[in-house]
Amino acid sequence: MTHFSMKTQISQEHDVLTLRVPGDLISTNAEAYRTEVARRMEGGGVAGQDWKTFVVDLKAAQMVDSVGLNLIVTWIKWVRDRGGKMRVVCSGGNVLRTFKFTRLDKHVELVEG
């Protein structure tokens, strides 16, 4: 199980902004991710730069729970408000099934990586 002690990585290449989540996205770390991402993207950092696609890289995650999904929904809305597109990359298996179960795959581009 991964906790937020492992730092997220945010990088931009051309017009693609990528957030790499280093482990599970679950109730015990989602709030920390929310705060960290908001701080780095809205508090200066990369927020002012041009990007059209926001990629959430969940390849290292084995589990995304309802609080993690809540955060994903928040980011979906946030990206929509900025006229961008959102893509979620996962390693398949359980995380992919969770997105399909909950129909979030209809709202984001879901890619197996």
């Binding site: 309802s66 929904v73 179960f101 909950t102």
Partner: peptide, 20 residues
Amino acid sequence: HRGIEGLVTAHRGLILMKCL
């Protein structure tokens, strides 16, 4: 069957349980 994007977290949890 309506998806979870419009729900509060607690209800997302219930839907997840139902799906799993």
